[in-house]
Write a protein that binds this DNA or RNA. Structure first.
Lengths: 345, 345
DNA sequence: GTGAAAGCGCTAACAT
DNA sequence: ATGTTAGCGCTTTCAC
C-alpha cells in the first residue's frame, strides 16, 4: 500500500516500475516462482499462483522487456523493414493492407511490430538495430530489388520478403503474388471480350513485378494468335498513365484493349481515351491492376486485378512466427490473384 | 580471423553475435574502455580508440540493445501509438505524412520508431509494451478522442499527442493544427468570392476536429452578416460526401457555396453538384480540406485547406526527443494551416 | 585515462 | 512444486 499511494506526485515524478523481486516479496514466494507464474509455467501450486497474481495486480507489475530479452535471448519483436520512401509506402494501398495483415496476425501472438524505414538511414542505424538483437526476425516489403545491407542481416535473423525476390544463400523466405499470372488474367479478359489490338501500359522496367505482369500479358496475347501491341512505360503514376496513353493512341490508333499495370495509371489513362472520342469499353477496353480505391474513382468503373495483399501480410507474419518457433516452412509462397469484374472491360 | 571464416555454415547456423568482451580482448583493453569508445566518451586515449575501432570492425561488433537498455534504463526507442483501425490509418494521407515527418526527425537521432496499433489489442499487449520499458516515450496519433489506457502510460513515460487533445493531469504534450481557423479560412474564401448562401458538409460529429472546423466556418459566415446554411454530416467518406451533397441540394437548392470538411468528401460531392446541372464554381463554389491527392482527382481542381501534417510529425518527434533529453517544452503547439487556391472556389 | 567490480531485472539450470 | 545460483551483455561508479 505504502508504495502506491503517491497521488501527490502525478505530474512531476514518474513512478519507478515495480520489479519481479518486489512482487516476490509481497507474494511471499521466490523470484523464480513469480517468473513461472508470469510465463505461464504449469508446475506451480494454485495457491502460489493466486498469491502472485494478486501481488502483481496490487503493484501494477509489468515485466521489464530489456531484462527479459537479455536473459532469454529473445526480444519478442519483429521488424517491418521498408527500404522505400515512407510517403510512397504509406500512400500505396497495397502496402497498407500488407501491414494490416501483418498486424492482424501479430495481434494474436505476443510479438510486437517495429517499423524501420530504411530509405535513407544515415549511419546504418537500421542495420545496427536489426543486428543488435532488438528483433527476433524481420519482414521486408518493397517493390524494389533487394538492398545490399540486408544480406548480413539475413545471416543473423530470419527474414521474410514480401512481393519480391529474396536474397540468395541465406535464410530467407518469400511471399509473393503471382504477377505474371496477374498480367495473364488481365490479357485473357481482353482476349475473351474480343479485343484484337491489345497494348499495355507497364510499370517501371526496373521493377521485377512490372516485368512479370508484362510477360504474362504478352504470353496470353501471343497464345491467342494475336500480335502484341506496344508496351509503354507509365511509371506507376497517374500522370505517367495519362502520358503513356496519349503516346499509345498516337502510335497505335486502332488499339481496342489495354492492360494498364496499375489502377493509378489507369485512372490517368482513362480520361485521355475518353477525350480522344473513344468509348470505354466499347472502343477501348481497359483492365487495371491492384483493385485500389482509384479503380472506383475512374470515369468508368475499372475491371482490375486484385492482389491478396492483406492475406500476404498475414502469411508473412505467420511464416516468421512459425520459423521463430522452430518450425519448418517452405521458402517460397505464391499467393493467387483474381479478377474483379467491373465495367471497363 | 579464425572466428570469422565461417563461410561453410551460412545457411544453417546463425552467427553468435560478438560481445563487448570479445572486442575488449582483441583490442587489449578493458571492457569499460570499449564501452567508452562505443559511446563516444571523450576521456579515452587516441591509441586505444584506434585499437578498439579496429577490433569492432574486424569482429563486426554491434552492441546488444537489450543489455544496453537494461543497464542504462533507456531504450532509445519511441512508440507510435495508433488507436485506430490500421487500414483507415494508412489510407489517410494526413497520417501518412505525419509518420513521414516523425521518421524524418528521428532519422537524425539515434532513436527508432516502434509501431503500435492499439485498435483491438487483445490482452493489453500494447499497454504492457509501453509500460515495460520498451520505449522511452510515445507519440499518439488519431482523430478519435483519447482512449482510456493511455492515462496510466502517460504516468510512466512522456506522451506527445498529435491532432487531438491530450490527457489531463499527466505529463503530455500536444501538437495540433488549428482546425477552427481552417474552417474559418475556408468560409472566408467563400464569403470573399461573393457567396451568400453558404452551407457545409461536416465530418462525424464525435470528432473534435470536425466540430472545430464547423465552428470556424460558422463564425466567419455569421461575422459576414450571413445566415449560415445547413450543416450536413458527410462522415469523412466519399460516398458520405455524395449523399450529404444530395441532401443539401434538396433542402437548400439555392446554395452557392459549400465548405466540405475533407477532400475525400468533396470528391464525392462534386459529381452530385455537376449532375444537378450546376457549375463549379460559378453556381456553387466548393472548398475542401486536407489538400490530399483527392483534391486533384476531383472533376474541378479543388481549392482546399492544407494541414502541415509532415511538419506536425517533425514537431512531435522534436518535442519528445527534447523532453527525453531533459529539456523543457511548451505543453501545446498549434500549427498553422493555409489555403491552397485552385479552381473550385 | 583506465581497469575492477557491482549491478540493471530477468530467465534458466540445478538443486531440493 | 519451489528455492538457489548463475549469468545474459552492457553501463557505471569508484579506485587507481
Amino acid at each position: 500500500m505504502s508504495i502506491l499511494d503517491g497521488d501527490h506526485d502525478v505530474t512531476a515524478v514518474r513512478h519507478a516500475a515495480p520489479t519481479l523481486e518486489m512482487v516476490a516479496a509481497r507474494a511471499g514466494v521466490s523470484r523464480a516462482t513469480v517468473s513461472r507464474v508470469v510465463n505461464g509455467s504449469d508446475k506451480v501450486n494454485p495457491s502460489s499462483i493466486e498469491a502472485v497474481r494478486q501481488a502483481i495486480a496490487e503493484l501494477g507489475y509489468v515485466p521489464n522487456r530489456a531484462a527479459r530479452s537479455l536473459a532469454s535471448a529473445q526480444s519478442h519483436a519483429i521488424a517491418l523493414v521498408v527500404p522505400e520512401d515512407i510517403t510512397r509506402f504509406f500512400g500505396d494501398v497495397f502496402f497498407a493492407s500488407i501491414v494490416a495483415g501483418l498486424n492482424d496476425r501479430l495481434d494474436q501472438s505476443d510479438y510486437v511490430l517495429n517499423l524501420m524505414v530504411a530509405s535513407q538511414d544515415p549511419g546504418g542505424k537500421t542495420e545496427r538495430y536489426l543486428l543488435g538483437g532488438a528483433v527476433d526476425g524481420a519482414v521486408v516489403v518493397s517493390h524494389h530489388t533487394s538492398d545490399h545491407f540486408l544480406e548480413r542481416i539475413g545471416d543473423a535473423i530470419p527474414l521474410v520478403f514480401g512481393g519480391r525476390p529474396g536474397l540468395e544463400n541465406i535464410d530467407t523466405w518469400v511471399v509473393d503474388v503471382d504477377n505474371e499470372e496477374g498480367g495473364a488474367v488481365a490479357a485473357r479478359r481482353l482476349v475473351e471480350r474480343g479485343c484484337t489490338k491489345i497494348a499495355t501500359i507497364t510499370g517501371p522496367t526496373d521493377m521485377q513485378s512490372a516485368l512479370e505482369r508484362t510477360r504474362g500479358w504478352k504470353r496470353v496475347v501471343e497464345a491467342a494468335g494475336l500480335e502484341p501491341g506496344p508496351q509503354v512505360d507509365g511509371d506507376f503514376s497517374m500522370v505517367g498513365g495519362a502520358l503513356a496513353m496519349r503516346e499509345l493512341l498516337d502510335q497505335y490508333p486502332d488499339v481496342d484493349g489495354v492492360f494498364v499495370a496499375s489502377d493509378l495509371m489507369a485512372s490517368g489513362a482513362m480520361p485521355v481515351i475518353l477525350e480522344s472520342g473513344r468509348r470505354i469499353p466499347e472502343d477501348v477496353a481497359v483492365v487495371g491492376y491492384d483493385d485500389s480505391p482509384a479503380a472506383l474513382a475512374c470515369p468508368v468503373p475499372l475491371t482490375t486485378v486484385l492482389q491478396p495483399s492483406e492475406a500476404m501480410g498475414r502469411a508473412m507474419a505467420d511464416i516468421l512466427l512459425d520459423v521463430l518457433a522452430g518450425g519448418e516452412r517452405q521458402r517460397s509462397t505464391i499467393m493467387p490473384i483474381e479478377l474483379v469484374e467491373r465495367e471497363s472491360a
